[in-house]
Structure formats: structure tokens, C-alpha cells
Design a protein around this nucleic acid. Structure first.
Length: 514
RNA sequence: GAGCCCGUAGCUCAGCCGGUAGAGCACUUGACUUUUAAUCAAGGGGUCGCGGGUUCGAAUCCCGCCGGGCUCACCA
């Protein structure tokens, strides 16, 4: 059923109406009420609790380094201005732990240095407030680097309390729904998302170094192509047409290759697949996709190893990682093995010796694998690989020899017409990369699309759709090329030892709370 | 979509062979100018996810629903 886009514009986009009229109403919450009272007192003192800016001169982490050699119980003449969130107060506000994104600095509220008005402000502070402090750097007798406050400014009064200061926030649902709380109190969560950013920066840097051009292609597509997956449907009002959120950027990146925008291009961006959610699947996920003209898929193996090992070195110090207690060595070169050989190794079935779809189906079914009666040789082989082999591929491996039937955008294997020049790279049993010698023969591409359309008609909703405009683009000539896709979220999971894809996505998809 | 598990104060958790709710942190008030999970004293705070059932009595047992987690299916 299509969503109904008619109706009241005010309620069109956000689902059930929010109780927006009551949001600033009565205080049902003792913590908020107490803080609102303090907010009023601050204003009565002439303090703006939400000022525009603060002239910060130093971050906590920088001070920690700069004064590493400052002896305990010594005072400098250095005046600094720091800012951050109040995370702890001791002795009635005399000592404050101020956290910024670089670390922690202690604030000392000295009666002798602060005015009566300033001391009153300090008394009105709460845990969670964002403040700015100017003062003198010293190290206490107990060795804590400290700023002796001469000025204390409220930069943002917090009206709600933070989670428990010692145990942090453990409830996974709250961690995902209110990620900001998770980030404030859980250092590990901050670390993972920072690592994500560094890993993506590493990939982008390596590609740019190698002469790749970063591009952007449509998220909204009239024909969702480039992958086998169920798309999200949306609607454009002015054109009055349904559009799909892309499941892959592939067909558009290839159009740019046809156009010669660059012989080396890449995109790092979101894709959307309307499928199940699991610890390894989020409906929107980030994919690196790159194309390099005049090379084949062998070059993509080297590229995969390069990007993954460089990312690992960015996230850690070696190519040896530990995921879920398992040590995995990512150093190149990775093992390479054909799919059929792996299936033979793990099941004893030699699909390459099977020459009919019926025999292939029977072989797969003997292993307990369910297959439609229309399943062909390639689907049977892949089903066996998928269910019996994939999860065993812990150490990095490039699996080659993908069947033609499941690889409609890939050049046929130059030595075996049943196969294609495609590989997927697996680490920890997960597909991390998918790469081809890209099919650039427009007539064969059309035949492949037509085979996909027949599969759709036989009931395979995920079979790829014919994109006639893409075939036309190929008719204008696309250079031979290698193409590669790497799942960024899973790569970040591996490199940060994160058990769930939700841990590496700041705002994972959740059911809206009723 | 199926199975299993979970939902108690703002947070972290205890209580669960049925007798009507507790701790620590946080909060409020007070003490404290060299603390750092500060400490000490006093106090406030709960439709025990929601609804129904069984029962003299339900946080506790049963059913349904909502939300979440894991596994499986889906993701060729």
C-alpha cells in the first residue's frame, strides 16, 4: 500500500502528532522543576544562562599535555579560559570536574578570587550545565591539574539530569534513542564514533592520494538499480511520481565513467534497503563504491586489501585486530579461493562437475537447503556457499568465481562461461567487499537484465530491474573497469570490536516510541 | 515473520515460591575551602511498561498488547 500524501500539511511528515502544545507546560519532574527554579535565580542575578559565545583559550587535553611537568602544589601565572560540561561537583561546588571533548580539567572555586555574585552563580550550578571558566593554572597538592576560577560563566543551563555518573548509561534502548546521553556519559561510545570518522577519513585520503575523484549520485531514483534488494518507496509531489531511495549507486557511477568525468571515481554515501534489522543490518547503511577504468577485478583485490589495512592502522596500531575475542590478521595478501572450491572443501559437492540445474538443486536440497523449483545452477551453488561456507570465513579471503546468474552486472569469467569475474571479500564470516570486472558490453547487459526480469516474473522480488537508459549509456561506450564496494559500517564494527551495527551508527533505525 | 529473554525511582540495580516496594548515585536542606566514585546528617521522589484475568490480596502467577535485546528467517 502506498502512503497517503494528501491531507493536512501540518501532520503529513511526522507521523502521530506530537504533544507540542504542552511541552513547556507544568513540571511533572522534580529535577526539572528545581533546575527551572535555579534558572530563574540566575536570571535574577543578571546572568544570561544561554549566552552567544565564550572566548575559550584552551582545551582540557591540551592543558594536560602543556602542564604535564607542573609539580604538585604549584601555581603558575598563566591565565586560561576553558569551557565544557559540569560532570562532578565536590565540597559544595568548590571543586568541579569540567569535561570537554578533549578530556577533563578540574575547576577550583576560590572564595578569595570570586566575587559574591560569582559565588552565587557557582551555588546555582548543576551537574550537566555547560560553563566557561577563566582562571589561573595550578596543580593541587594531590596532583590534579586545576584552574583556579576568577570568572565563571553559565553557557547553557541544563534542565534535565544526567544518567548515573559511575555506572553510566547501560540501557541499550535509551543509548540509541537518546544518543547524546550515551555520548556524554559513555566514553566507549564516543570512542567508537570518533574511530568511525577517522576510518572514513583514512579511506577518503587513500583514494584521493591514488587519484580518485569523489562524486555524489542520486539518492532518489526512478528505477532502483545496482543491487538485488527491496527498496523504500517515496513520492515526489510536484512530478507526481513515485521515487525509490537508492539501494546502490552503481548504475550512476558507471554513467559518470561513460562520461569520462574521471577514470577513477568513488562515492561514500548512504544506501537504503527495505529489509530486516539485525545486529549486522540497518535499513540505511554506508557504502564505499569505487570504479577504476582500464583495470579488472584483480586490481580491486589489491585495492580492498590496501583500504582495509590502512583503515586498520588508522583505528589501531597494527593490522592484527581482535573481534569478539577472536584475533584476525588483516595483513595483505589475503587468501583467494573460488566459491565452488570452498563449497567442495566444506560439503564434498563439486558443483563444477554438475551440468544441470536439476542436479544442482538436488545436491543443495540434500544439505537441507530450501530452493525454488525454478532455481538455476548458479543460485543453487550460491545458496550452498551462503548457508554452509560464509560464516566459516574468519580470516580475510577473496571469494572468486561467482555464478553468472547472480551477477548480472559482471563480465563473464574469461575461462568459464558459467562464472563471472566477481569476488566478495569476507572477514569474520561477513561480506566486507564486493567487486567485479564491470560488464560494459551493452548487448550482453541487456540480455542479463532480461534474464533478471524473467526472474522477477517468476516471483523473485529482488531480481534487478531493467534500466534501459543505463543500457543506452553503455551503448555509448564504457571503458573496461574494475568496481568495488565496501560496507563501511561492518568494517567499522570489525575495527572497533563493536558487537552491533547500531554501535557504529550514531542514530540507528528504531521503531518510533508510541 | 517465528522462538527465547528483558521492561521496578532521573540513572545503575535488588526485591519475584503472592502479603501491598528498597539500596547506591542523582535531587532538596544543612555542615565542610584542597576534594576527585569527596564525606557527614536529615529529607523528598515510584500508575513496579500498558491493559485484562486469577486471588481476600499481584511488582511477583496467567493472558493480550507496547517497547527493546538475542537467535532464526529475510538480506541472492
Amino acid at each position: 500500500m502506498l502512503p497517503d500524501f494528501a491531507g493536512d500539511p501540518a501532520t503529513r511528515y511526522n507521523g502521530p502528532a506530537q504533544d507540542w502544545q504542552d511541552m513547556t507546560g507544568e513540571d511533572d519532574n522534580q529535577f526539572r522543576a528545581a533546575r527551572l527554579d535555579k534558572l530563574g535565580q540566575l536570571k535574577a542575578l543578571g546572568v544570561d544562562p544561554y549566552p552567544y559565545a565564550f572566548a575559550r583559550s584552551a582545551e582540557a587535553g591540551v592543558l594536560e599535555e602543556r602542564y604535564a611537568d607542573l609539580a604538585p602544589d604549584s601555581v603558575t601565572a598563566d591565565r586560561v579560559a576553558v569551557a565544557g560540561r559540569v560532570r562532578a561537583m565536590r565540597n559544595g561546588g568548590m571543586f568541579i570536574d569540567l569535561h570537554d571533548s578533549s578530556g577533563k580539567i578540574q575547576i577550583f572555586s576560590d572564595k578569595k578570587l570570586l566575587s559574591e555574585q560569582q559565588l552565587a552563580v557557582v551555588r546555582l550550578l548543576d551537574l550537566g550545565d555547560i560553563i566557561g571558566v577563566e582562571g589561573i593554572v595550578r596543580r593541587t597538592r594531590r596532583g590534579e591539574l586545576t584552574v583556579n576560577a576568577t570568572e565563571v560563566a553559565v553557557l547553557a543551563k541544563a534542565l534535565l539530569p544526567l544518567p548515573e555518573k559511575y555506572h553510566g548509561l547501560a540501557d541499550v534502548e535509551t543509548r540509541y534513542r537518546q544518543r547524546y546521553l550515551d555520548l556524554i556519559v559513555n566514553e566507549d561510545s564516543r570512542a567508537v564514533l570518533r574511530q568511525r570518522s577517522r576510518i572514513i577519513a583514512s579511506i577518503r585520503r587513500r583514494l584521493v592520494e591514488r587519484g580518485f575523484l569523489e562524486v555524489e549520485t542520486p539518492m532518489l531514483q526512478a528505477i532502483p538499480g545496482g543491487a538485488a534488494a527491496k527498496p523504500f518507496i517515496t513520492h515526489h509531489n510536484a512530478l507526481d511520481i513515485d521515487l525509490y531511495l537508492r539501494i546502490s549507486p552503481e548504475l550512476f557511477l558507471k554513467r559518470l565513467l561513460v562520461g569520462g568525468l574521471s577514470d577513477k571515481l568513488f562515492e561514500i554515501n548512504r544506501n537504503f534497503r527495505n529489509e530486516g534489522i539485525s545486529p549486522r543490518h540497518n535499513p540505511e547503511f554506508t557504502l564505499l563504491e569505487l570504479y577504476q577504468a582500464y583495470v579488472d577485478y584483480e586490481a580491486m583485490m589489491e585495492m580492498t586489501e590496501h583500504l582495509v589495512t590502512e583503515a586498520a592502522l588508522t583505528a589501531g596500531s597494527t593490522t592484527r585486530i581482535v573481534y569478539g575475542g577472536k584475533a584476525i590478521e588483516l595483513a595483505a595478501p589475503w587468501r583467494r579461493a573460488p566459491m565452488a572450491a570452498l563449497v567442495l572443501e566444506h560439503t564434498g559437492i563439486d558443483f563444477l562437475a554438475i551440468d544441470s540445474a536439476a542436479v544442482a538443486r538436488a545436491a543443495a536440497r540434500r544439505l537441507g537447503i530450501e530452493l525454488a523449483d525454478t532455481a538455476d545452477w548458479g543460485h543453487a551453488l550460491y545458496a550452498v556457499f551462503n548457508t554452509r561456507v560464509e560464516s566459516l570465513l574468519i580470516e580475510p579471503i577473496h571469494v572468486t568465481g561467482f555464478p553468472r546468474e547472480i551477477s548480472p552486472l559482471t563480465k563473464t569469467d574469461r575461462n568459464d562461461p558459467r562464472l563471472t569475474e566477481r569476488f566478495e571479500s569476507f572477514i569474520n564470516g561477513w561480506e566486507i567487499a564486493n567487486a567485479y570486472s564491470e560488464l560494459n558490453d551493452p548487448q550482453e547487459q541487456l540480455v542479463r537484465f532480461q534474464a533478471q526480469m524473467r526472474e522477477r516474473e517468476l516471483g523473485d522480488e529482488d531480481a534487478q530491474r531493467l534500466d534501459a537508459d543505463f543500457v543506452t549509456a553503455l551503448e555509448h561506450g564504457m571503458p573496461p573497469a574494475g568496481g568495488l564496494g565496501i560496507g563501511i559500517d561492518r568494517l567499522v564494527m570489525l575495527l572497533t570490536d563493536s558487537p552491533s551495527i547500531r554501535d557504529v551508527i550514531a542514530f540507528p533505525t528504531l521503531r518510533p516510541k508510541g
